[in-house]
Nucleic acid binder design. Structure first.
Lengths: 168, 168
DNA sequence: TATTGTTATACTCTATAACTATA
DNA sequence: TATAGTTATAGAGTATAACAATA
């Protein structure tokens, strides 16, 4: 951030240009994407991979991956919800959620309690240490989001966010 | 649907069951995404998963996945390029591209030839049957893209495409 | 020394199927 | 019959490290 001031107003554009040139150099040839250029999925995938990598790198001190983060956040916001509801909300398989929760429970972040209304299901909670950890994890995740804003530009990030929000 | 009429009295039971399930579904609490709602990565991931699933389903007759499609398309548009350039362009690991090409070669779609300028590298080409197959595959991929347009709306899809194009 | 293609390993994630205990 | 959680398995994808041949 601070080094930006030295280069003046064109910093963002300059940084983008430099980054692009760097990517081109690595490629050493201008390669045609062909019909890929008309497929939204290709670009969505590239962005998603970039986001995952930056997320993991930024939160490496916590050893938290995007899926784990989403589970912690949704449990915090809906204490006592069931695994089925959680899986349905996040669009992940119930079978996969089992392992995910096993890991978070082993680390002392979450807990499965007996549901008071349905003996088949579990009510999910964050432990106290889970809540404390999540507080710091969310701060780191916000840092990741700042990287994204830096990379996309605040306007574009906001536009994408509101465009995609009602998709789910 | 039509078999309901044949079952006579049990139609009511079936209808009751369906109505109950519907009530259950509605009764299910609305789940709060918490801070996830401010993370672009979450929504990008959800969209990307949707796209992958629709792509695979739409192209199931060809047994082609997104990564394979992107490899075929870029080889077609840049016949003779090297594996390193292809991997760099698509942002996939060189190690992974090896297996990907093994599979496409085994199916007779692509071919590795000796590079005329660098004895370390391979020059990649589509075979004739690979070109013929890709022609039909691209038509199916366009069908998938139409699903996406249907789901997002043409305007939003176009806006997303042009917003993300210069990200890579 | 650096790069190209390759092999190998570990881990994450998706997609299914099946099982149990409840409802 | 259907649902919640679980176990198991197969396959795709990511991330690394290492190696031989070549630049």
């Amino acid at each position: 951030m601070s080094d930006r001031q030295l280069t003046g107003p064109s910093t963002d554009l300059g940084a983008t240009r430099i980054a692009r040139r760097e990517r081109m150099r690595r490629r050493r040839q201008v390669i045609d994407l062909g019909v890929l250029d008309a497929h939204l999925g290709y670009f969505v995938r590239r962005l998603q991979v970039w986001i995952f990598q930056d997320f993991v790198r930024t939160l490496s001190a916590f050893d938290i991956r995007p899926a784990q983060f989403s589970v912690l956040v949704v449990i915090e916001a809906n204490q006592g919800l069931s695994q089925a509801d959680l899986a349905g909300t996040l669009g992940i398989e119930r079978a996969r959620l089992v392992r995910l929760l096993d890991g978070l429970e082993r680390r002392g972040f979450t807990r499965r309690k007996a549901s008071p209304i349905d003996r088949r299901s579990h009510a999910l909670f964050l432990t106290e240490s889970g809540q404390a950890a999540l507080k710091r994890i969310k701060a780191a995740a916000a840092e990741h989001e700042a990287h994204l804003t830096e990379r996309l530009g605040a306007r574009k990030r906001e536009a994408l966010l509101s465009a995609l929000r009602d998709f789910v």
